[in-house]
Amino acid sequence: MLRRIPPYWILLSPGLLILLLVFVVPLGRLLVLSFYRTDPSGAMQAAFAMEQYIRFFSDPFYMQMLWRSVYIGIIVSFVCLVLGYSLAYGVARARPERRFMLLMLIALPLLTSAVIRNFGWIIILGRKGILNETLIAIGLISQPLDLLYTPAGVIIALVHVMLPYMVLVLYSVLEGLDRNLESAASNLGASGPKVFWFVTLPLSMPGIIAGTLLVFSITLSFFVTPSLVGGAKVKLMATEIYNQTINMLNWPYASAMGVILLVTMLLVTGLYKRILNRRGPKGVNLG
């Protein structure tokens, strides 16, 4: 007689199988590769050595690149949070029949091809681009700003594509927020800003955490926008991993960088959740 398989395994298995094949196996392969050696000719040798990691951590060039990736990730997450919160709040408070249209408008950057979107930014941000020409024409600046191929330009373009993720996550939380809670707070004597600070903001923490983590981790691994808008001048982990894989053909080193990026991401998000959870009350699950 067959042993009965618990039904949840049947429900889990298709997803688990896909994750195993396209995620766990390649990731394991990546980890193994990262311990290989690269001999002087550039060929890789199977080994279990720390060579690649030592190379990374002893070179300030790469350490700076890691730091640049992290801080661009943090800035993009923060800017998306500030811009996205008011957008999401606005949509959640709009008339129900308008919300769908507003959400579609907000999701529009996601529906545009990455190539078109980024070439658009190149046209806008260049020294003779639309933005600089306009600012000079209205007399706000006399010299063009350096935006294209700078971290600032990369941040602008990344915020553009990441904002919809943030808004969608925040919207789902704010939309489910009981408006009576805000009414109750104001009835108990809280002015508008205090209602926001003591009620709306703490209750939207799950969305804030989920949204920033999502944007941060996607940003850190985002490759197309930094390589097109940042070019060779703004070197980030993702673009350099690409470079090492495709141009330098140094797969062990690219693998090690991939592992380092992944561990960094896990460390930063873990630390972030810890800080917020310590400050949050235990009655509410903050994600």
């Binding site: 009981d178 809670l181 109750a184 703490p202 209750l203």
Partner: peptide, 8 residues
């Protein structure tokens, strides 16, 4: 619906 603050 009582409208108690769930986080407090």
């Amino acid at each position: 619906n009582y409208a108690l603050f769930p986080h407090l």
